[in-house]
Design a protein around this nucleic acid. Structure first.
Lengths: 152, 152
DNA sequence: AATAATATAGATATATTTGTCCTTGATATA
DNA sequence: TATATCAAGGACAAATATATCTATATTATT
């Protein structure tokens, strides 16, 4: 559904939000290992998400790394999609028509219009803080188990 | 959501099913113009869908072209996704984890599992015949109006 | 049999995505 | 102030997706 860039970004943001804080920043090495993504490529993606410190914050130097401010944790994962210009994956016509709408519908429009809001809702109705909180007492994962096994 | 290849394929199959028959085959020129897609590229994609005449049938030579047999019209659009190996767009983990499952869920799993079956259903609960029939008396489109305007 | 119209197939070109590497800049700490 | 540790940024490389072009095979019609 999403590009690899976006998949990495979503996983990274959740990981950073869960384990990072201004007092405990997370290095790109740790992030890439945790979410099983190519390090340098992930670094590039995170750069887009740190622009203007809207979502992710970063600090260089020793004990530097990435974290989310408490304010940033009020954002939703939809913010990630927007910053990467990938929200169109959800919002655009499934048949790729540029002007698909209620008055000029594609053959799938009447059906997809019932699903689209659910996808939007899925990424926008919970703050990152809530999402991470939900995860605290579950066995949820962000890593490919198959990769973990290789590393062991 | 889908690749351009898949978007073109879905639009093409619907168009061919609506206007084509063994007695009235549709040329690639007409298809590409109707669905607003690059001709040669679309031809390549249709080749994949004509393998073994599973979905689209084709005949070379004068008055040749593409059509769907009555049997093929019993298929669903899910068949297009399968033939192009794009059903994973719907079925795979939204965060890109290879082993995301009920027992090893990603943070979005519990939410996406409610939507995934609806997406599958959307592409598999109606035959292409039914879909085309639904379209007969509606103002549904398969073309980018903006492109139409350019051509006029 | 010749011709024209069609899809098929292969080669190539272009654009985009994904990925790596190396240098630079920033900063905490010794 | 020197050094080590971190992200930022730029250049490049590889893989994949998208697109075009040309030649070939098939077939209906003349």
């Amino acid at each position: 559904m999403f590009s690899k860039s976006t998949e990495y970004a979503l996983r990274a943001v959740i990981f950073i939000a869960k384990w990072g804080s201004p007092q405990n920043k997370i290095s790109i090495d740790r992030i890439a290992q945790a979410i099983d993504s190519p390090k340098s490529f992930t670094a590039k993606i995170l750069q887009k998400l740190t622009r203007d410190n809207v979502l992710i914050s970063s600090i260089t130097g020793p004990n530097g790394g990435f974290y989310l401010s408490e304010e940033a944790k009020d954002s939703t994962l939809m913010k990630v999609l927007e910053l990467l210009d990938e929200d169109h994956v959800i919002t655009k016509c499934v048949l790729g028509l540029q002007e698909c709408s209620e008055s000029n519908p594609c053959p799938m429009h009447s059906r997809y219009k019932l699903i689209k809001p659910q996808l939007t809702h899925m990424f926008s109705n919970k703050t990152i803080r809530d999402l991470v909180h939900d995860l605290e007492d579950t066995n949820v994962t962000l890593t490919n188990a198959i990769t973990l096994r290789k590393k062991i």
